[in-house]
Design a protein around this nucleic acid. Structure first.
Lengths: 155, 155
DNA sequence: CTAGGATTTCGAGCGTGCTCGAAGTCAATC
DNA sequence: GATTGACTTCGAGCACGCTCGAAATCCTAG
């Protein structure tokens, strides 16, 4: 767990609405395209509204970036946009819905582990085929152990 | 290949073009919808043309089913339709391209293992969050260890 | 022979998650 | 002020992998 870091604010006036990173810089730091950043915002994935300058430009704070990175990680596990939106809603609503957040995460976790198991299981088929082909090639093309029209296994 | 049967040749018992399973039965046995079976065929995923009755109905043999199951397993690891088509082409072309088949499988294997690693890595975030929420709920809602506006960690 | 269910082809539609483009705004520099 | 480039909104477009539908045909039961 991270420690809360209460001190590091004295430098700049924090309520300055111009403070923060441009969308291009936020994209660079999170590894997400500016298009996708805006899409995520439109899709309701943000917990707290991204700040804006007087002129309407987005200004990203560290918290925004952190949340976006969390979103990308959830996406990387296959969590659908809708589920992330729901989770974001729960988080932004604040305390009192921890039970539902937990349920959402647990449900997704179950899907991920099931998917992992499925992939791993089917990866064995690929490994097996790779072994077969390596064996065939090592033995030389002409020397076929199996007849043509042979078991599906050798395909 | 099947023989055209314009003349009465009632003798050859098993090259009967009516033999084999209906598409509905093939769907039932492979766990793939009839729509998808036809789609896979259109998409060029089949190694050998599925047989037809005189009336034009598909008749699936065991080899066809086996291949379809292989396709579903490759799909389950995330192999794109295009790659499966390429692999099917290589297989149906026959001997002499084992090197390319192997390369295709190895390339896909690399993608799968990378994807697995990524999912597993990001699953840790989910596990961590689940732990946090379980801890929070076990400690009682009112007893928050962290302040509101706390680190992204507790979201 | 007729009814009706299964199957055919092939194009269209759908859900997901971006990705792009047009037209306009903002802001820094000349 | 004018130019230039980053940024804005919002709808459209795209890639993928199915999924569906319409109209015609096949085949079996009655």
């Amino acid at each position: 767990m991270l420690e809360v870091n209460p001190l590091p604010l004295p430098r700049v006036a924090r309520s300055d609405s111009e403070a923060g990173l441009s969308i291009a810089e936020a994209a660079r730091r999170t590894g997400v395209s500016v298009h996708t950043l805006r899409y995520y915002e439109r899709a309701g994935l943000v917990v707290t509204p991204v700040g804006r300058t007087a002129g309407g430009r987005r200004r990203y704070q560290q918290l925004d970036l952190d949340w976006i990175v969390i979103c990308t990680k959830l996406r990387a596990t296959g969590m659908p946009i809708k589920a992330i939106r729901r989770y974001a809603q729960l988080v932004s609503t604040g305390r009192g819905n921890e039970q539902e957040r937990l349920a959402l995460l647990e449900a997704h976790r179950a899907e991920v582990t099931a998917k992992l198991a499925e992939i791993q299981e089917n990866l064995r088929l690929i490994d097996h085929k790779i072994d077969v082909y390596r064996g065939r090639l090592a033995a030389g093309d002409a020397d076929q152990l199996w007849a043509p029209g042979s078991p599906a296994d050798v395909r």
